[in-house]
């Protein structure tokens, strides 16, 4: 079981790296969103440092969304998804493995690079650390939630926009608690961090069951 899981993760990571570095591209996109915000708001450092965690989180949500449409679609097109459906490993495990690989390729680099980008929006050191921590804990939830949408739209051409529409409302709680946990001035930050962790775990379970059901439904 664990070997199947590890093999799938390794395969998806290898594909992600070879196809032009999903992680690298995601990081560049993340940087671009962070760069855009000061142009829209003006270079007021006080304002930027106040909304900095929110900017990083929004950028994180957008960066998670862009890679989603290929998460299952590529495997659906070349037939490997059919093989996974037929394999003795439960589809839920396959989904989890693909989510983990997706997170390793997009979410994790974001969380690790966020202290660097936080400097651009004038975050204090304490806020830098908390933002990185909240992104580290929260981005898996984004990947899991996104996987449900990706599975639903696996067989739909040009599903990218549709996935965003399906998935963004589901990401609202993660965003709320993520930003709250990132703000060091917030009195409820530790509670928010705990809830964020709970959301990540719960969304993992929901995503495994939901996305697997969606993939089974799409195959018949």
């Amino acid at each position: 079981m664990m070997r199947v899981f590890a093999a799938l993760v390794r395969r998806d990571l290898a594909i992600a790296v070879r196809v032009g570095g999903a992680g690298g591209l995601g990081l560049v996109f993340f940087l671009m969103v962070v760069t855009l915000i000061p142009f829209a708001l003006g270079p007021d450092l006080n304002l930027l440092s106040r909304i900095g965690p929110a900017v990083l989180w929004i950028a994180g949500v957008l960066a998670t969304l862009i890679g989603l449409d290929r998460l299952f679609q590529a495997d659906e097109e070349d037939g490997s998804l059919d093989l996974m459906r037929l394999s003795p490993a439960p589809l839920e495990l396959v989904v989890l493995a693909k989510c983990v690989a997706h997170w390793l390729a997009t979410g994790l680099p974001l969380a690790l690079a966020s202290p660097l980008f936080g400097l651009l929006v004038a975050l204090e050191p304490a806020a830098l650390g908390r933002t990185a921590l909240s992104l580290l804990i929260g981005t898996p939830a984004l990947a899991f939630t996104g996987a449900v949408g990706a599975a639903l739209a696996a067989s739909i051409r040009r599903g990218g926009l549709l996935i965003a529409i399906l998935v963004v409302p589901l990401m609202v709680p993660v965003l709320i608690f993520g930003v709250a946990a990132a703000d060091p001035a917030n009195a409820g930050r530790d509670q928010a961090l705990t809830i964020l962790l709970a959301l990540t775990l719960a969304s993992g379970a929901v995503a495994a069951i939901g996305a697997a059901a969606a993939l089974r439904g799409g195959g018949q």
Binding site: V148, A151, L152, L166, P169, L170, V172, P173, I176, F177, A180, G188, I195, L199, V206, G210, A213, A214, G217, G218, Q220
Partner: peptide, 28 residues
Amino acid sequence: GRAARAVAVLTLVGAVNIPIVKYSVEWW
């Protein structure tokens, strides 16, 4: 038939999500 199954999954995931949204928005 396929649309119904896909929407059913989305609806149920959404149904799990609604109380969480309600709670989180109130908290927020």
